[in-house]
């Protein structure tokens, strides 16, 4: 399970229908953030990598993603050193894959709304 279903339900309890809007926002903004992480790695902008992976981490944690936040955290921590290392590409690939899984889950969740 890429997302904690319980967390989503709790959020749904608190904000009801609005949860749909939140998820849709996540589905819209997250691909953009992923693109920014990728770009930052390409142009070797470590600070950019750090910031955008941090944002995705928070955003993903917010909707209850389980693995994605920790993958982002790893990359964020490495980027704090200030250097874009070759391993970043692999780490990014993992984040990308996990993100797709989260997106897929959420789209399905939305349909069940």
């Amino acid at each position: 399970m890429p997302v904690d279903q319980e967390n989503l339900n709790m959020l749904k309890e608190v904000i009801g229908e609005d949860l749909k809007e939140v998820i849709e926002a996540f589905l819209t903004t997250s691909p953009e953030i992923l693109g920014q992480i990728k770009l930052s790695i390409e142009i070797e902008d470590a600070a950019g990598v750090q910031l955008h992976s941090h944002t995705l981490k928070g955003s993903a944690a917010n909707i209850g993603a389980i693995h994605l936040p920790s993958l982002c955290a790893e990359l964020e921590t490495k980027a704090k050193d200030g250097v874009v290392a070759p391993e970043f590409n692999d780490m990014y690939a993992n984040i990308e894959n996990e993100s797709q899984a989260v997106f897929k889950f959420l789209r399905e969740f939305l349909q069940s709304f």
Binding site: V14, I15, E21, A25, F26, S30, I63
Partner: peptide, 16 residues
């Protein structure tokens, strides 16, 4: 908050 999703969630929760 800079993250749009988190911000949106917070707004929704608090307004409600």
């Amino acid at each position: 908050e800079d993250d749009a999703v988190t911000r949106l969630t917070l707004v929704k929760v608090l307004v409600r």
